[in-house]
Simulated assay, not measured.
Amino acid sequence: MHDGTRAHTWFPFPTTPPASFQRLLPSILNKALPSFPTKPSLSLSLSLSLSLHGLIRVLVALLLASILGSSEARDFLVGGNDNAWRVPPNTTDSLNQWAEKNRFQVGDSLVWKYDAAKDSVLQVTRDAYLGCNRSSPVAEHKDGATVVRLHLPGANYFISGAAGACEEGEKLIVVVMSERHSLRGLATAPSPAESEGPAVAPTSAARRAVVFGSGMACSLVVLGMLM
């Protein structure tokens, strides 16, 4: 039978700060606020402690919600608009530059919009991508509204099926991040340019960013649990 009280089961943290923190807070405030006309009382210290505790709980909750929300699969419209799958007007407007600005995870999908009477999308190997070889694609799509789901981490190569279009720059590399290294917003996106060389793994800078971001997230979670 419900007793009328509200159980706070949504967040597994204690409702009051540890006693050790409460004992230390007055001395911390005395050092931090030497110009106070009177020394902070224990009640004031406890009040500030509770306020700080509540703030940290909110921050940790928002962080966890952001991390969990980022794991949802997303659809990416290739190039960001319906007319992007075409020969780029110049070298500074390539689809690979668009890909560099995004972070792709396993489970995400790529969406193409194009005129099926004039073009198509070929998923190819790395060698076929570099040589613009349209003869033996891994998969061919020509429905005008292509959706390709990214099932595995690593590089994915796409070229146009129209004659001569790949040679003029209508092609795309999408590097999918590993699931264990996919904190969106904390990791640097692997560059498609790296996948044209021997290696397709994220750069050392990207790995350092992931480690730093993961460590920061874990630190905030631990801090919230201690508070």
Score class of each variant (00 low, 15 high):
residue 1 M to E: 11
residue 5 T to P: 00
residue 5 T to G: 05
residue 5 T to L: 11
residue 5 T to K: 11
residue 6 R to L: 09
residue 6 R to K: 03
residue 9 T to I: 09
residue 10 W to P: 00
residue 10 W to C: 04
residue 10 W to G: 15
residue 12 P to W: 04
residue 22 Q to H: 03
residue 23 R to S: 13
residue 23 R to T: 13
residue 23 R to L: 13
residue 26 P to I: 00
residue 29 L to A: 07
residue 29 L to T: 02
residue 29 L to S: 04
residue 30 N to E: 14
residue 32 A to H: 08
residue 36 F to G: 14
residue 36 F to D: 14
residue 37 P to N: 01
residue 38 T to M: 09
residue 39 K to L: 14
residue 40 P to R: 00
residue 41 S to A: 12
residue 41 S to Y: 02
residue 42 L to R: 12
residue 44 L to K: 06
residue 44 L to Y: 13
residue 44 L to V: 12
residue 45 S to K: 03
residue 50 L to H: 12
residue 52 L to D: 04
residue 53 H to Y: 00
residue 53 H to P: 01
residue 58 V to K: 06
residue 58 V to R: 08
residue 59 L to T: 08
residue 61 A to R: 04
residue 62 L to Q: 09
residue 70 S to L: 01
residue 73 A to S: 15
residue 75 D to Q: 14
residue 79 G to S: 10
residue 82 D to Q: 11
residue 83 N to F: 10
residue 84 A to Q: 10
residue 87 V to I: 15
residue 87 V to P: 11
residue 89 P to N: 09
residue 90 N to T: 11
residue 91 T to H: 04
residue 92 T to E: 12
residue 93 D to E: 09
residue 95 L to N: 13
residue 98 W to Y: 08
residue 100 E to H: 07
residue 100 E to N: 10
residue 101 K to S: 15
residue 106 V to M: 03
residue 107 G to D: 08
residue 108 D to G: 03
residue 112 W to H: 05
residue 113 K to I: 04
residue 113 K to M: 03
residue 119 D to G: 02
residue 124 V to K: 05
residue 127 D to I: 06
residue 130 L to C: 02
residue 132 C to Y: 01
residue 135 S to Q: 07
residue 135 S to D: 04
residue 137 P to G: 10
residue 137 P to I: 05
residue 139 A to P: 01
residue 139 A to D: 08
residue 139 A to E: 14
residue 139 A to G: 07
residue 140 E to F: 01
residue 140 E to P: 00
residue 140 E to Q: 12
residue 141 H to N: 09
residue 142 K to M: 04
residue 143 D to Y: 01
residue 146 T to L: 01
residue 147 V to A: 11
residue 148 V to E: 08
residue 148 V to W: 03
residue 152 L to F: 10
residue 154 G to M: 06
residue 157 Y to E: 01
residue 159 I to T: 11
residue 161 G to T: 11
residue 161 G to P: 07
residue 162 A to D: 08
residue 163 A to L: 10
residue 163 A to W: 03
residue 164 G to R: 14
residue 165 A to L: 04
residue 169 G to Q: 06
residue 173 I to Y: 02
residue 175 V to D: 02
residue 177 M to P: 00
residue 181 H to W: 14
residue 181 H to F: 12
residue 183 L to C: 03
residue 184 R to T: 06
residue 185 G to L: 01
residue 187 A to K: 06
residue 188 T to E: 13
residue 190 P to Q: 12
residue 191 S to C: 09
residue 191 S to R: 15
residue 194 E to M: 11
residue 195 S to R: 05
residue 196 E to I: 02
residue 197 G to T: 10
residue 200 V to M: 05
residue 204 S to C: 05
residue 204 S to K: 08
residue 206 A to G: 14
residue 214 S to Q: 13
residue 218 C to S: 13
residue 219 S to W: 03
residue 219 S to R: 00
residue 222 V to L: 15
residue 223 L to F: 13
residue 225 M to E: 06
residue 226 L to W: 12
